[in-house]
Design a protein around this nucleic acid. Structure first.
Lengths: 372, 372
DNA sequence: TTGAAAGCGGTACCAT
DNA sequence: ATGGTACCGCTTTCAA
């Protein structure tokens, strides 16, 4: 009803260049065609197919008309007509988390390079919400759906998610996951285990013997993988299990803080290095140590994981494992677009040794407490 | 061509519930209608208008059929038919920047609360790119376009942007800007000037007399406003211009680092407090000071702006001005949806005094260099 | 209450 | 090279 009233049928009213009229309806391709005195079909060709099969004179007239009228093609209409859109749908657990915003940045880069726009939705770390989002997103018929988020063990929901994605793919959709491998779809995986392992070996080589390992809930695969990788690295370096203390806590800064407090309370007992499975947690650890009168890096070494930007700004600078999140994002788009069925791409990590783990640890036989 | 081959015209083939077939076409409303033995129109009503005018028996059959078939409405088709979409388009300068990702989080919250999905695009801090994006976005006919980013003075592009947004609004679109006021559209503004002014007054009250102010390029309004606000606060507190040193640099961490180096090199000359117009810069300043053998907070006080999360994790904890970015985001959506034409909403800020500006400054007359 | 049919803004095939 | 037109999937009159 809104589209019929104020528009001329076929040049009945003289065309006017003025934009001043308060006409509430946007310019359509038909308007452009009329203005350029060509058919709808020709206008479409002129605007899309380059110069393919349109006399340049006509093409110019169409282009001019479009510009004059301020024509912007209706993406939805194009999508319905073509049966496909030019978008990539991204589901992240949390935008405000630098981890995911870095991934989002990578995806946005890659998408724009391919002429796609990104639609982003936030699952709030809930598998349930994630599922709902994917379901809704399917309705937008995006070219690609990318889901970024650590798998959280939750059988039923996971199965439904797999169904949903499978249906999506069955109808020609493309997908990529950024998380742990295990789901039957193309997956970009950060090599958490190997990164943690390398870190552990490096620390062992630097002379550290007694460790505390602070990790998050085991349901969170990212945490678990890093934890396991680290202990694997220690084992390979000949560090006994009795020289490893584990604390499980929240996967957050305050989780790290609390764990470190607990550690200090019960007595450090010769622990030389505290490894927290994320930088955020590690920073909490450092603050807790300092609050307890201990100097991180001198009294106890601290290491983290992620290499978030503030890792180099805390004091002492934090030893950590760099995760190229942005690359993970671009890689996900590449993978989804490629025809590699169900491939898993591992993104390598890099260890950065900094001041929080000085080369020479506090020598070896210090059975009771830190240096005071 | 892909849509015609494998689908039955009107129940010629018996319907099957199996999903195993490799049929590359998705389920349409027509399929659901046929399956439920009602007309297209009735199916549409059943799925949309609640129970309005559909016999409950039929409605149930439609719903069942839809569920059985895994029907997901085609958002693009709905959009073309209805002439409007259920999306809010967000243009940010940089997702990876916590400043914008916090805003994005707020917008996402508000959008989802209103049943809208967010499409996010990144302008890379380029006004030109921003303009192109808005132009492209218009094609998606979003309900709302939100642009988040400090205005950058650039006359021509700005004018074009205004045109583009005006056309968008003329065709029924809604907009909100998160930036400085000045453009003829509803705007959410962080009260940078007032925040900086309050900070300055607080610091003056704490006893600081001699200041260095490190800011970014004047083109960036956010920087300029904070700078001006700070000096206004100093002036109001009776601090003379001769007690204020200005350094202009990049609006980044390394900009802050460099500026602090310069400051140290030329001799601190009694400067008691360094104010950097963003936390990121302030953190660069702190690292530079430390690298130069000075202890931030003891030898020179440091203050920033934004209250990014790492502000409390650096040592000493950084005095700064909190900006409720997430609220700015939600407010923008609210504003766009409301019918307040061209209103400007100011978001208030909060000063947090921390260890980087201890109460008692290093007394007064120390004309040459820092304490050594 | 229901179904037929006319759009929505485009795309792409088919003649000419 | 160009125009006519069927069609994309869905919404919404308009009669029945």
């Amino acid at each position: 009803m809104s589209a019929l009233d104020s528009r001329s049928e076929s040049g009945a009213t003289p065309r006017r260049t003025r934009v001043t009229d308060p006409e509430p309806v946007s310019v359509t391709l038909q308007d452009v065609a009329t203005e350029a005195r060509v058919s709808l079909a020709t206008a479409s060709r002129a605007l899309n197919g380059g110069s393919r099969g349109v006399r340049s004179e006509n093409r110019d007239r169409v282009l001019a008309a479009a510009a004059r009228l301020g024509y912007v093609p209706n993406a939805s209409a194009q999508a319905t007509a073509k049966g496909s859109t030019q978008t990539v749908a991204l589901v992240v657990s949390d935008v405000a988390d630098p981890y995911y915003s870095a991934i989002a940045a990578g995806i946005t880069d890659a998408a724009e390079a391919n002429g796609l726009v990104v639609t982003m939705t936030v699952a709030d770390r809930s598998p349930r919400r994630e599922l709902e989002l994917v379901r809704g997103l399917r309705g937008h018929r995006p070219q690609i759906i990318v889901i970024a988020g650590s798998r959280i063990d939750d059988g039923a929901t996971e199965r439904e998610l797999i169904d949903e994605l499978a249906q999506y793919r069955a109808t020609g959709g493309r997908t990529a996951l950024i998380s742990q491998p295990g789901l039957p779809f193309p997956t970009v995986t950060v090599d958490n285990a190997r990164g943690a392992e390398t870190l552990a070996r490096t620390m062992a080589e630097a002379g550290y013997r007694r460790y505390a390992i602070i990790c998050g809930p085991n349901r969170i695969r990212t945490s678990l993988d890093r934890c396991r990788g680290f202990t694997a690295g220690l084992r390979a370096s000949g560090i006994e299990a009795e020289d490893q203390v584990f604390i499980q806590t929240q996967f957050t800064r305050s989780g790290g803080y609390d764990a470190a407090c607990e550690l200090v309370e019960r007595g450090l007992d010769g622990i030389e290095l505290i490894f927290a499975v994320s930088d955020t947690m590690a920073i909490g650890v450092m603050t807790a140590l300092r609050d307890a009168g201990l100097e991180p890096g001198r009294d106890v070494a601290v290491a983290g994981f992620d290499d978030i930007s503030s890792a180099i700004d805390v004091v002492p600078a934090l030893t950590t494992v760099e995760v190229p999140l942005r690359e993970a994002g671009t890689e996900a788009v590449r993978l989804a677009l490629s025809d590699d069925e169900n491939r898993t791409v591992r993104i390598p990590t890099t260890v950065h040794v900094r001041a929080s783990t000085p080369r020479a640890p506090t020598s070896s036989p210090a059975p009771t407490g830190p240096s005071t």
